[in-house]
Simulated scan of single mutants.
Amino acid sequence: MNKIRKGDEVIILTGRDKKRRGIVSAVVGKDHLLVDGINVVKKHMKANPMNNNPGGITSKSMPIHISNVALFNKVTGKGERVLIKELDGVRTRIFRSDGSSVDNKS
């Protein structure tokens, strides 16, 4: 079970996007994430008429390492660490600071 999943709200801990928040759009491999609006780079694309691609300069979101993000806790307003506990035979993610469940957020 991964501590950070697709659809989670995270806060960036390091880099040029530090202290910005975003939603995880995809998990890339075992230790990288794609976060909407975070780590956006300019990519020079060559035109390809076979794929109907006009080319030019486009913006692209690049993966960020999982160690550079923390799960955002709406109650405390901070990024926090997560632990995984088994409650009633079901593995759930729990914030370390206050013990509230991550999965039962609404």
Rank of each mutant, 00 (worst) to 15 (best):
K18N: 06
V24N: 06
A47S: 15
R21W: 09
R93W: 12
S106D: 08
R96S: 02
G77F: 08
S101I: 10
I84S: 06
L71F: 07
A26E: 15
K78Q: 12
N48F: 09
I64M: 07
V28E: 12
L34T: 04
F95S: 01
L34V: 10
I4L: 14
I66Q: 10
D98F: 01
R96A: 07
K85Q: 11
T92Q: 12
K43S: 04
E86W: 00
S100F: 02
N104V: 01
D103G: 02
S61I: 07
R20N: 11
F95V: 03
G99Y: 02
I12C: 08
L71H: 14
G22N: 05
S101M: 05
P49F: 14
G22A: 09
D31F: 14
K3W: 04
F95H: 08
G77D: 07
I84E: 00
N52P: 01
A26G: 02
G37Q: 07
P54H: 09
T76D: 06
T92Y: 06
N48Q: 11
L33A: 09
S25Y: 01
I38C: 02
G7W: 12
H44Y: 05
R81Y: 14
I23E: 10
R93D: 08
E9N: 09
D88S: 13
I66F: 12
V69I: 15
K78L: 13
K46Q: 06
I64R: 07
I23R: 10
D31V: 10
V90K: 15
V82I: 15
N2D: 15
K74N: 13
K18G: 01
S97K: 12
N68K: 13
D88K: 15
K18I: 14
R81N: 15
T14Y: 14
A70D: 13
I23T: 15
K46R: 14
K30N: 15
N48I: 10
V90H: 09
V90W: 00
K6C: 06
I11A: 09
